[in-house]
Design a protein around this nucleic acid. Structure first.
Length: 548
RNA sequence: GCGGGUGUAGUUCAAUGGUAGAACGGAAGCCUUCCAAGCUUCACACGAGGGUUCGAUUCCCUUCGCCCGCUCCA
């Protein structure tokens, strides 16, 4: 419901999160830690509800005998919880090990950063001056280096033949004379720093003794847990393709720049599902999951105007992917027309299962082949285990293709928070305009479902009755009981944390105004602020229907 | 990781080289018959660590956090 894309809006939301106990900075009393956050009493309730809504939609509410709307056919669904620390070879064959640890160099002048192994260059001399001229290009490196050398030596293009070349174009990694390097965007020599390692995976050590052999990693994604357990799940739970394995859990990435509240963090929770299907049906399943996942957010009440389903361009696709779409939300910190990713739905083909069978794969033309080391053997061999699937009916054996909807739980929580936030201008009885801050959470995800209030706290009959109503509801939902201050104040407090319903016990309830209204309470709606009288005995049924 | 800005109660803001005020919010009490009423009382802050100084929240340094830009982003 956010009206403006502004920093201002985001600051108000962050402030409310802190003030009301949704989200705090990690280790705040020690000055805080960048990119790490804690959920407070209301935050944890909200997050658990969102995760539960996802798990229910994916796993528990799924009926394998019923064909969901839009699905090619009925399918099975189950879940796992794998360990955060996995065998180091998992990350080598998956490609994360190579991809997530890079040597980087910074340019002190241009403030740019490059992957060390992406910079190419050559020794060029002119007029007794010699420099290692570099560039980063996918095109003709020599041409680019020539252009940059001419520029550096202040020569016109027609004097290219005056340049004296010493050797061929090589990688910067082969050069040690950093003070003679002309960085790709620099105008002078020696502006690059020494190469430094950037490892996006958190390292730890297994066992009390530290050694190189004992190095392990905190998982940078949960997906590998499903792939390495594919065989186990098929063998133990009679799963038949097509089926999905869902998992929720923490992942860790040493992000260079955590930013934007809980949007990019170093420790984050994922809600991922790996769907295994026959290769010939994979495109249909991809379409199905792509639409199904988008609608999940919409069904939970997110503003459709701020949510988009964006198909990736071909060039944007990861090397293994046949197709990928993102569910993205227009966060307040996004520029006009920009969105932040909540979830990626990827067609991953047979990349993952094949990797864990054969070894780390790389693309060669249109083919995925096992990457060779210098000795001609697989650089990172797979498990060697058979991860193919045998279809009893068709007698066919194949490597299933995978469709992966991978959502960020914390980002989803943040999106729901931002979307729910509204500053509503209302005119009170005295004709004065005031601001009401309301969180319009869908009742299913709201941290507190109902507030129970005795109209006055100094009337023991009202308090006693309110306690009864509280006890009636508490086994079924989160109830917040409040008797302090004026009733309007209590309503507003609950509006600000998104409690969808308020129940007030008044003199009618205890029969002071006749039998007609005895044992009735007022039920207030958060969004409309309207109230209706309902029988106490009907209350539980009414509320359960609304919050399910 | 680089550059710029910034840091005072929970929040939004003051003041000050002699350790800090307010409003809102919070807690307790009185009162109150449905949308932040009133009165009384109470609690709560100079991000952290050094240095200069008789004395630092104030000046200096370092560090941490936050914001903006760059960079990065399976």
């Amino acid at each position: 419901m956010a009206e403006t894309n502004s920093n201002d809006q985001m600051e108000k939301i962050v402030s409310l999160c802190r003030r009301r106990g949704f989200i705090f900075q990690s280790s705040e009393i020690y000055g805080g830690l960048n990119g790490l956050w804690d959920y407070g009493p209301l935050g944890v309730a909200l997050k658990r509800n969102i995760k539960e809504a996802w798990w229910r939609d994916m796993v528990t509410a799924h009926n394998e005998r019923v064909q969901p709307e839009g699905a090619p056919k009925p399918f099975q669904m189950t879940g796992i919880e794998s360990s955060i620390i996995m065998h180091p070879r998992v990350w080598k064959t998956s490609g994360h090990y190579d991809l997530f640890s890079d040597m980087m160099v910074d340019c002190r002048k241009s403030k740019r950063r490059y992957r060390h192994d992406h910079i190419k260059g050559a020794w060029v001399e002119h007029d007794g001056q010699k420099a290692f001229v570099t560039c980063v290009t996918d095109g003709d490196a020599k041409e680019e280096i020539t252009r940059r050398a001419l520029q550096y030596f202040k020569l016109k293009a027609k004097y290219a033949d005056k340049l004296v070349w010493h050797g061929d174009v090589t990688d910067l990694t082969t050069i040690s004379e950093t003070d003679q390097v002309l960085a790709p965007d620099a105008k002078e020599l020696g502006t690059l720093t020494e190469p430094r390692e950037f490892n996006l995976m958190f390292e730890t050590h297994i066992g009390a003794m530290r050694s190189d052999d004992s190095t392990a990693f905190l998982r940078p994604e949960t997906a590998q847990g499903m792939f390495v357990n594919f065989r186990n799940v098929v063998d133990s739970s009679r799963m038949k393709v097509p089926f999905g394995i869902a998992q929720q859990g923490k992942s860790f990435r040493n992000e260079i720049t955590p930013r934007n509240f809980t949007f990019r963090t170093r420790e984050f929770e994922q809600m991922e599902m790996e769907f295994f299907c026959h290769p010939s049906e994979s495109r249909e399943w991809y379409q199905f999951w792509r639409d199904r996942r988008f609608n999940w957010y919409v069904d939970l009440g997110i503003n459709k105007e701020r949510l988009i389903l964006r198909d990736h361009e071909q060039a944007e696709l990861a090397h293994y992917s046949v197709g990928t779409a993102d569910v993205e939300y227009a966060f307040p910190f996004c520029e006009e027309g920009e969105y932040g990713e909540l979830e990626g739905i990827a067609h991953r083909g047979d990349f993952d299962l094949r990797s864990h069978m054969e070894g780390k794969l790389v693309r060669e033309g249109d083919e995925l082949v096992v990457e060779q080391g210098e000795d001609g053997k697989p650089k990172y061999p797979g498990s060697g285990k058979d991860l193919t699937y045998h279809d009893e009916e068709t007698k066919e054996r194949f490597v299933p293709h995978v469709i992966e909807p991978a959502a960020g739980a914390d980002r989803t929580v943040l999106a729901f928070i931002c979307d729910a936030y509204e500053e509503e201008e209302i005119t009170n009885e005295k004709g004065k305009t005031e601001t009401r801050v309301v969180m319009h959470f869908h009742p299913r995800i709201a941290p507190v479902k109902v507030g129970v209030f005795p109209l006055l706290k100094n009337k023991p009959e009202l308090v006693a009755k309110a306690m009864e109503v509280r006890a009636l509801l508490q086994p079924y939902m989160t109830v917040f009981y409040d008797e302090t201050g004026a009733i309007g104040r209590r309503y507003r407090r609950q509006d600000e944390v998104g409690t969808p319903f308020g129940v007030t016990i008044d003199f009618d309830t205890i029969g002071e105004n006749g039998d007609a209204t005895k044992d009735t309470v007022t039920l207030r709606d958060r969004d409309s602020m309207e109230q209706r009288r309902v029988k106490t005995e009907d209350l539980l049924g009414i509320l359960l229907k609304e919050i399910m």
